[in-house]
Amino acid sequence: MGKTVRDHLVDTLEELGQDQFKKFKTKLNAFPVREGYGNIPRGRLEKADALDVCDKLISFYREEYAVEVTVEVLTDINERELAVLDFTKTGHHSETNILQQMV
């Protein structure tokens, strides 16, 4: 059985060191999301581990947009290589120009 988008997101978040994961959660809370979406409340992210954050990303943004948000936040915290890896592993090759923006 192949890995799901959720599995890949968890793997990606688990690759971050403790400090980078903290930066990721801080940026995620303030990320300018699309119209019709809201930010994940800070209190829900404070003590969340990678699995919890992944669940919240999918719950708040659904899989496709959760991948996009994750990639953009990773890029914002200077984790471009991890962002590209996440983007390609989740199969979102035809998304917007995110990959071009990262290079």
Rank of each mutant, 00 (worst) to 15 (best):
59 S>W: 04
62 R>V: 05
44 R>L: 14
41 P>M: 04
71 V>M: 02
61 Y>P: 03
50 A>R: 02
30 A>L: 07
21 F>P: 11
43 G>K: 00
32 P>S: 06
11 D>S: 13
77 I>V: 14
59 S>M: 00
22 K>C: 04
76 D>R: 08
72 E>R: 15
26 T>M: 04
90 T>G: 07
20 Q>W: 05
8 H>D: 10
13 L>M: 14
91 G>Y: 05
49 D>N: 15
31 F>H: 14
84 V>M: 05
103 V>L: 06
69 V>T: 15
85 L>G: 10
34 R>D: 11
34 R>V: 04
86 D>A: 10
76 D>H: 07
5 V>A: 09
29 N>E: 08
78 N>T: 12
45 L>N: 07
36 G>K: 12
20 Q>K: 08
48 A>Q: 01
9 L>Q: 08
90 T>M: 09
6 R>P: 02
95 E>T: 12
85 L>M: 13
82 L>D: 11
74 L>A: 06
51 L>Q: 07
37 Y>D: 11
14 E>A: 05
101 Q>K: 13
49 D>R: 03
11 D>A: 14
34 R>A: 13
30 A>I: 03
22 K>Y: 14
96 T>M: 04
55 D>Y: 00
38 G>M: 07
86 D>Y: 00
17 G>N: 14
103 V>N: 01
54 C>P: 07
35 E>L: 10
101 Q>E: 13
59 S>F: 05
63 E>Q: 12
52 D>E: 11
66 A>E: 07
85 L>P: 00
88 T>Y: 03
37 Y>A: 09
14 E>Q: 15
74 L>G: 09
78 N>E: 15
31 F>L: 01
46 E>Y: 08
18 Q>R: 10
83 A>K: 03
51 L>W: 03
91 G>K: 04
62 R>P: 01
35 E>V: 15
28 L>M: 06
38 G>C: 04
94 S>R: 13
98 I>D: 03
49 D>G: 06
77 I>A: 01
86 D>V: 14
1 M>A: 15
63 E>N: 14
103 V>W: 00
82 L>F: 00
101 Q>S: 09
80 R>S: 10
1 M>N: 15
49 D>A: 02
7 D>N: 14
101 Q>P: 00
41 P>T: 11
64 E>H: 08
48 A>F: 01
62 R>M: 08
23 K>R: 13
99 L>S: 09
51 L>H: 02
2 G>L: 13
7 D>F: 03
19 D>T: 15
81 E>F: 07
32 P>K: 06
9 L>R: 01
14 E>F: 11
75 T>M: 03
27 K>W: 04
80 R>Y: 00
91 G>N: 08
41 P>N: 08
11 D>Y: 12
67 V>T: 13
85 L>I: 06
34 R>K: 14
67 V>D: 07
16 L>R: 04
45 L>I: 05
56 K>P: 01
70 T>L: 07
82 L>Q: 11
26 T>Q: 10
6 R>A: 12
57 L>W: 09
87 F>S: 09
45 L>F: 11
31 F>G: 03
80 R>F: 00
67 V>Q: 11
98 I>V: 15
19 D>L: 11
49 D>Q: 08
35 E>W: 06
102 M>C: 00
67 V>L: 08
7 D>C: 06
51 L>E: 12
22 K>N: 13
9 L>S: 03
91 G>V: 02
28 L>A: 10
